Simulated scan of single mutants.
Amino acid sequence: MSAAITTSRLVKKYRTTRAVDGVTLSAAPGVVGLLGPNGAGKTTLMRMIATVVAPDAGSMRLLELDPADPRERVEIRRRIGYLPQAPALYAGFTPFDLVDYVAVLKEHTDRSWRRRETRRVLELVGLQDQMHMKIRILSDGMKQRVALATALIGTPELLVLDEPATGLDLQQRLHLGSLLAQSPTVIFATHNIAEMAALCQHVYVMVAGRIRFSGRPAELTELAVGQVWEDDRQDSNTIRSWPTSAGTYRHLGRPPANAQMVEPSLDDGYLLLVSQAQQQ
């Protein structure tokens, strides 16, 4: 099956800073995670994939269409759902009004269909009892679910989600996972490692504008094999060290002789990769 997203050497610059620096990736059907520290360039890359901003260099195909072609870009926008990192919601609207308005912007002209679809997506995100309340009085988590509902209009073939679980409690995060599993292709950006591990079949790690890792979560964990140990004392000659709940110190890096080695976690693999990339 063809990849829903393919990019080749994408570049986006802001003055002298390369926010995205030669990114090549591919997203096949399933859930793909884009992981990285704050400032890694994840949001800029997601905005390009959502066709909000154009790259300065490189090429991209979305749903086998070229977003550089204006006619094909319009067709792409009809077939994707996008949740930005900081969605702008009209506080005076109700969730029902806002979702219906976004459906109009996506050129759904059948009013009866829009009303049914608006109810459907609001029920999907658990807002059936709040759909006619003003957005200004909703909690942050409810507002995030309103924004998610707008991304789900029309059952998009591709979901582009930037930090989708922001403001959601544990139960809502689990429900989000169920929603994403039902979508044909999802790419979502996060800096939450546990969230990525729970939802993704494939993960990219982005540091300083570049893709530094591509693979399964288990493969990211394996990067730290033989480089994690615990001791009663903190060793300053490590890449990272931190106290544990057991009162020991966990260390990441080149172990000393006779170190008490432990099995690495996904956090260890990620921290090792990011630390090494930032030192280059």
Rank of each mutant, 00 (worst) to 15 (best):
S2D: 10
T6D: 13
R9E: 14
Y14H: 10
R15N: 10
T16R: 11
A19C: 02
D21K: 12
G22H: 02
S26N: 04
P29G: 01
P29K: 00
G30I: 04
G33S: 12
G33C: 12
G36C: 00
K42D: 15
T43F: 00
T44A: 13
L45V: 12
A50R: 10
T51C: 04
V52A: 13
V53S: 10
D56N: 14
G58W: 01
S59P: 01
S59G: 11
D66T: 05
P67C: 02
I76Y: 01
Y82P: 10
L83C: 06
G92A: 12
G92W: 14
T94Q: 05
D97Q: 07
L98A: 13
V99T: 01
L105I: 08
H108E: 15
T109Q: 14
D110H: 05
S112T: 14
R115C: 08
R115V: 13
R116N: 09
E117Q: 05
R119M: 02
R120T: 02
V125Y: 00
M133D: 03
K134P: 08
K134D: 11
R136Y: 11
I137A: 13
I137N: 09
D140S: 15
K143G: 15
Q144L: 13
R145C: 05
I153D: 07
G154W: 05
G154R: 06
T155I: 06
L158T: 08
L158D: 10
L158A: 10
L159D: 08
V160M: 14
E163K: 12
P164E: 09
T166G: 11
L168K: 06
L170G: 07
Q171N: 10
R173K: 05
G177R: 06
S178T: 15
I187A: 09
A189G: 13
T190K: 01
N192L: 03
A194T: 10
A194P: 00
L199T: 08
C200E: 07
C200I: 07
Y204D: 09
V205N: 10
V207W: 06
V207E: 08
R210S: 05
F213Y: 05
S214P: 02
R216I: 01
P217K: 03
P217D: 01
A218G: 12
T221H: 00
L223D: 14
L223S: 13
V225P: 00
W229K: 08
E230S: 05
R233V: 14
Q234Y: 02
T238V: 15
T238R: 05
I239C: 08
R240A: 14
S241C: 09
S245N: 13
T248Y: 00
T248C: 00
R250C: 12
R250Q: 15
R250L: 10
A259E: 03
V262K: 11
P264H: 12
D267G: 04
G269I: 04
Y270K: 10
L272I: 10
S275C: 12
Q279Y: 01
Q279R: 06
Q280K: 07
Q280C: 13
